[in-house]
Amino acid sequence: MKINNSYTEGIAKLEVNGLPDHSLGHDTNTIGIILNWRCTLVGHSILEGKKEHLSNLIYAINLYSRYCITGNHSNVSDKTNSVFISKHKDGHELTFISSKKEIEPLSIILDDAEISDFILCIDQFVVDKRVKIEWIIHDKIKFSSKRKIIGKKIKINLINLFTAFALILGFSLIYMKIPMPILEETQEEQKPFSQRTSSNN
């Protein structure tokens, strides 16, 4: 039996149609297979597509929200580059690129309140226990700080390597500049060894 779930937050309304996956033992209220979905952004546009499109949208939105909360408004896109989100002077620009060549890319500009609605609407769907689908959410918990730490570590390692090399080079140069003590050679020492021994005898 077809299941229809809907999630609403402000201007955003997400409707998902699906079926339970009986092979995985889902009950009649659980969605295991997504047939189609439709997201209405009141005053903007209606988005719809297949499971893959929804998965790409969830990935991009989640990543962007994590950037936004840290104040880092980086441009975000999914792995297939079908969803692209960037900061715009009037808010946030979402660009959806269709897999069909004849369809022009759709661009929407949302302000802070509208993008929050959209993010929270997607969140409602992601955390819904009635949907048993694993979504790809990159580094779900520690995304922002981990990224920065990794970057810093690489930087620190390079700095350490460079410092060590510079120190070795510096010390070598200083050592080379130090004048060696000149030993006065006696006449005896200047003679070849064979002659020295014979003269002794």
Partner: peptide
């Protein structure tokens, strides 16, 4: 706004050590 809800808490925890 981004901290509200269940996923919001996860976002807040991930970003709380970052400067505002």
């Amino acid at each position: 706004a981004l901290s509200s809800g269940k996923e919001g808490l996860s976002r807040l925890r991930a970003s709380i050590f970052e400067p505002l």
